[in-house]
Design a binder for these strands. Sequence first.
DNA 1: GAGTCAAGAGTTAGCGTTAACCCTTGCACT
DNA 2: AGTGCAAGGGTTAACGCTAACTCTTGACTC
Lengths: 334, 334
Amino acid sequence: MPTKRKRVTLEDVARAAGVSAMTVSRVINHTGRISPATRQHVSEVIEQLGYRPSRAARTLVTAKTGMIGVVVPDITNPYFAEIVHGIEDVAWEAEYSVLLANTNENPAREAAVLSQLDDAAVDGLIPVSSRLPDETLLPLLKQHRAVVTINRQFPRVASCVRPRHGYGFRAYQSALYLAHAGHERIGYINLQRSLINMQIETLIERMAEHNITIRREWCATCLPTWEAGYQTGHVLLAEHPELTAIIAGNDLVALGVMRAAIELGRRIPHDLALIGGDDILLASQVTPPLTTFRVPKYEIGASAARLLFARMDGDLSYQEYLYEEEFIPRGSAP
Amino acid sequence: MPTKRKRVTLEDVARAAGVSAMTVSRVINHTGRISPATRQHVSEVIEQLGYRPSRAARTLVTAKTGMIGVVVPDITNPYFAEIVHGIEDVAWEAEYSVLLANTNENPAREAAVLSQLDDAAVDGLIPVSSRLPDETLLPLLKQHRAVVTINRQFPRVASCVRPRHGYGFRAYQSALYLAHAGHERIGYINLQRSLINMQIETLIERMAEHNITIRREWCATCLPTWEAGYQTGHVLLAEHPELTAIIAGNDLVALGVMRAAIELGRRIPHDLALIGGDDILLASQVTPPLTTFRVPKYEIGASAARLLFARMDGDLSYQEYLYEEEFIPRGSAP
DNA sequence: GAGTCAAGAGTTAGCGTTAACCCTTGCACT
DNA sequence: AGTGCAAGGGTTAACGCTAACTCTTGACTC
């Protein structure tokens, strides 16, 4: 049985240093006026006793936790991992900790996570690509002192960081690009539960305005994972061998389709052109490399964190950081 | 200026329900004996007032935070992202939150993170593939009530989850495999700061026992990232065009080397064979697909979390979960 | 009918900090 | 000498919750 070493409290330090607890508190927090001599002395005692302030006690009295919450649909998706990386770096600089929640692309779990992660648990919140509908998400965000959304917009409640055009515009641009390259039978794979992407019908209508026909049956919806893309690719290509190009909502899905296409004996891009959506590392490394849109994921995360700290500091003005998506033509759709 | 809505406290609920604070506390925590009628009534009042317990206050008195700390070298490395995924799922089941810290492969930052993340900040800790030397890491782990390490071993202090053989054995096996395939000039790229991998000299010696020569100048060390592998690959192949095979510490590095090799006009596997180390998604998707070792990343994370909860529940016996690495021969080294 | 016991509550006393206020000095200025 | 004031530091009272007791009742035992 190891000796139950008791926590060193502020009081202990105060006693040992021969000062009041408040003085020690002031030394630690660099608040109030302390003479250099006292500061020095107290610091030494703190060092010697190995005192560490209790986060919980501090939180209880200041109502600040020193933590920010980050909610992502899927941490294994490189797109989100990069964003989290950016957030974490900025949080580290600001001496904040990151409470990470992964929702596994499950809206129910996301709602549960968000209602647990209230304003008492974290000082600020960054929901990344929330999969919840506005009417569910909004009240959950309102609980919080400070929120910055990524890939969603709630001007009254949160600042926002996102690619300028979003999935919808990318799909639109991809379709135009493919049409100009001569493709006449273009399929589109929409991302399930992603609420800001272009609906299939909208894409069809908008392309019709350009006299480009996209048939409803050439389109599908799936989860934004590689496996889902792979399965959907198999199904879509089996049912519609006439397709000469497919646009996917993101890179993982596009790469899943690419694998399916290769297994079905399609040569890319000769038999099938493919366009993805966020330029993860994987996209540039496959053969042929994937045509996609570059999105500055790390910077999006970092900016969101900076905006969040601004909000937490009381700047409640609505800020919107838009990042340009850069079209990256590569081998899969030259 | 919005009305500063005050937090609903346990006391408020107690008053509204006409019972004592303790009764409410017991209802919430399902402790003690409460009559069904009282429980029902209190629950309704809680619901009605929208009461949510304060984590901080609870932590202050129970000395439990409801959080576990997870420290990873690089969340954008799919290997770690998968492990975190596993941890997060199990933590979620257990109603625990995950405090994630990313150290960016920087040992100084890792040390700083670990000393901040003391036993008052989290109830348990999972350091994943720590890059710190034993003598630095050990005292930092001792601060904690419960620790489970991944890819490191400290039997007195923490349970451990890891692949059975580790980088060293994989390098050894890869070298044997390549030698049997007829390769005589095999290079090895060691992972910098990874402390459980085989040292270059050790590999050279052990291969010498099999009459296989690996020259010191055919070996290099780099960070476990794609970029580092890419650069190292360029350098190594430029300086030693005689190499017919390269073994890398992990998949990202191997894939970086693959890219470099392709740029240098090497055909893989004909001119250069490549073997990686952890079977990330990317490995199976490149052309040719990468020969590597499958490691059950999600399961490693999930097991570690389960072991951690066991430790937190007081089971301090040393547990070691070993996962078999499965050699996956693919196109890059058939 | 006194004693026993358990169910179902209530009471008290912190947990470790900091906000907000209060108290001493010493010194400059009139 | 009296006044004013700032520097440096102390006191007190929460913050919201739960551990550990205590108290009251009614049912059951012998």
